[in-house]
Nucleic acid binder design. Sequence first.
DNA 1: AAACCGGGGTC
DNA 2: GACCCAGGTTT
Length: 309
Amino acid sequence: MTKAMTDAVHQRVIDWFSEAARDLPWRRPECTPWGVLVSEIMLQQTPVVRVLPRWELWMQRWPTPADCAAADPAEILTVWDRLGYPRRALRLQSAAAAITSQHGGEVPQNAEELRALPGIGEYTAAAVACFAFGAPEVVVDTNIRRVHARVFSGAALPGPTYTAAQRRLAHELMPATHDDGGVRACAWNAATMELGALICTARSPQCAICPVADLCAWRAAGSPPPTDSQRTRGQAWQGTDRQVRGAIMAVLRQRSPVAAAAVLEGLDLPEASADQRRRCLDSLVADGLAVRAGEPGSAVEQIGLPGTV
DNA sequence: AAACCGGGGTC
DNA sequence: GACCCAGGTTT
């Protein structure tokens, strides 16, 4: 791909974004860095439409990191509701506590300091530095990997793992920052992500209305279907510990504390053995998502959300 | 590099 | 019913 073609892709995607971008609350100018951070954590593995109402409630209740850090962890998990992966909620509160105690209550502005916070990895650190503070970091999520794979590599899908070659490509594709201080680089990140979310989707991409369809290497190759190695192996759900853990957490959000025996026997999961139920309950306690009172396995054993027992 | 971690919408 | 989703942590 020549520099002229890369420049053309930049221009087309950024122009497309300026008129097609969704009006999301964490993209508005008045949104705080904390609001951006909360959105990024919630959006890890969770679609925008499901995040929107939870984000609004969260920001209304805890408008600053200090508010969140001081909150009752049981309420944190209750407001998180069914967003999934509830450990994210506790890590977000831990991050808020670190921001409050170590950063004067202000969200750090650079990726390195963000990366050191609980629950913030390579992607989220770059995304917050870029979207909240305008830093020209290389942001790579699953949408961006897919766009890169198609437009520049000619592949149907990027494959399940983020490879060194993909990281190198993402760096090479970043617009120069010497003349605008990174404005264009940030726009490229946001625009590419949005293109992957709205047009260049995994299942049925809308190439007919794609701003770079005529520049796309995958299209030029005849839009070949994904190979077996490019397919992501879907996670099982029925019968997994994740399903059982989720069912236990649903009970605790409803009523807490509660007798452990009542929870374990009341789960509407006929396939789950007594061993699995017990193992999952213990793992929730180990993860800090639940706390226990009374001897495990005894008649007086009680389970509750953290802080309620 | 691979396993683990939720839950719901879509095709 | 398979597939997908603005990933991170642990081993």
